Computed example of a mutant assay.
Amino acid sequence: MLGFGLAIEPQLWAMIFVMVRVGAAFVAAPVFSNVSVPLTVRVALSGAIAVLVLGTTPVQVPQSVFALATFVAVAAEALVGLALGFVLQVAFAAPLVAGEIIGGSMGIGFANMIDPNSGRSSPAIGQFLSILLTLLFLSLDGHLVLVDLVVRSYRALPPGASWLAADQLRDIALFGGYAFLAGLLLALPVGFLLLCLNLVMGMVSRSAPSLNLFAVGLPVSLAVGVVSLAIALPAMGDYMQVIIREGLAAAQSLVLAGAR
């Protein structure tokens, strides 16, 4: 029943209720939250996954739509979905941190572009690394693992008892530091070479004060940065796979509390 003497099909109301958690996960999760993904596609995917959930997991839906308990249950469902997507979004922020470090060391930190996925301005190198991480995420079937986590979340955190504990919320907040750690490790190969170059340029400028450091240092930093980035790209790609696995594992352990 909707309330006020109105009625709705029970199957339709159950699907709409399940779509709240799935849709919230898609709003916060990488790839699905990109502005390039049309809203109709997200709604269609949420409906398809909701049908899958209803066919595999018994879900107790509130009896009345316009009730305080229903609004609380919907808020709890949205919280679980947003937490699943947010943990993965933290891991996907590592390339942007690495791009800031590398771009600043190369002297092209001012080279920003409008990211078509988020609609915000981001460093050119960070955007390149983000696209590479997204392609690796899709190639490793990370989007399918995310859907599997959302489906299994209905067994770990069933509707009606899906509020996250305070310890889980604290661990999710502390996981935000992983973006800086992973970004630093991702930029370490190129950043170390650029740091050595800056030390050398500093010694050269002290030994030859008449040397125009800006006319010599910027082209050299740019050339060394591009070459070192090309050389270190395979190792950076391997670490990006580690970032993806860590993000998916954290989404399971932090949000689902190790549910199998």
Results as ranks from 00 to 15, higher is better:
V31M: 08
L52S: 13
V31Y: 13
V37R: 03
A50M: 03
V41L: 06
L45R: 14
A44I: 00
T56A: 13
T56W: 10
V35A: 14
V27R: 12
V59D: 03
N34V: 01
L39E: 14
F32T: 07
G55L: 09
S36R: 14
T57W: 12
G47K: 08
N34H: 13
I49L: 14
L54Y: 06
V37I: 06
F26Y: 09
A28G: 09
F26I: 07
A24C: 10
P38K: 08
P30D: 05
V27W: 15
V27Y: 13
S36V: 12
V35C: 11
N34M: 09
L45M: 14
G47C: 15
L39V: 11
S46F: 05
T57N: 11
L45S: 05
A48P: 08
S36G: 14
T57F: 10
A24P: 02
S46K: 00
S33V: 08
T57Y: 10
V37W: 02
L52Y: 14
A29F: 02
R42P: 02
S46A: 15
L45D: 00
A29D: 02
T56K: 14
A24W: 04
I49Y: 01
G55S: 07
T56G: 06
A48M: 14
V59Y: 08
F32C: 09
S33K: 03
I49V: 09
S36I: 08
P38G: 11
L39C: 12
V53S: 03
T57Q: 13
A29Q: 01
S36H: 13
V51F: 12
A44Q: 07
I49M: 06
A28D: 13
A50N: 00
L54H: 02
R42E: 05
G47L: 01
V31W: 08
V53N: 03
P58D: 07
G47R: 13
T56E: 11
T57D: 15
S46L: 05
T40V: 06
P38Y: 05
V35E: 11
A25V: 01
N34G: 14
L39A: 11
A44F: 06
P58N: 14
V27M: 10
L54W: 04
S36D: 12
V51D: 15
A25P: 03
V59N: 01
A48D: 12
V51K: 07
V43L: 15
T57K: 10
A48Q: 09
N34W: 15
P30G: 03
A29H: 00
V41W: 10
A28C: 12
V59Q: 03
F32R: 03
V41S: 11
G47V: 02
V59M: 08
V51Y: 13
T40S: 14
T40H: 13
G55Q: 10
V51S: 12
V59W: 05
V35I: 04
L54G: 03
T57H: 15
F32M: 06
G55R: 11
S46D: 12
A48H: 11
A25T: 04
V59A: 07
G55K: 07
V37D: 00
V53W: 02
A44P: 09
F26P: 00
I49N: 01
L39K: 12
S36E: 10
A24R: 00
A24S: 13
P30T: 00
L52F: 11
L54R: 05
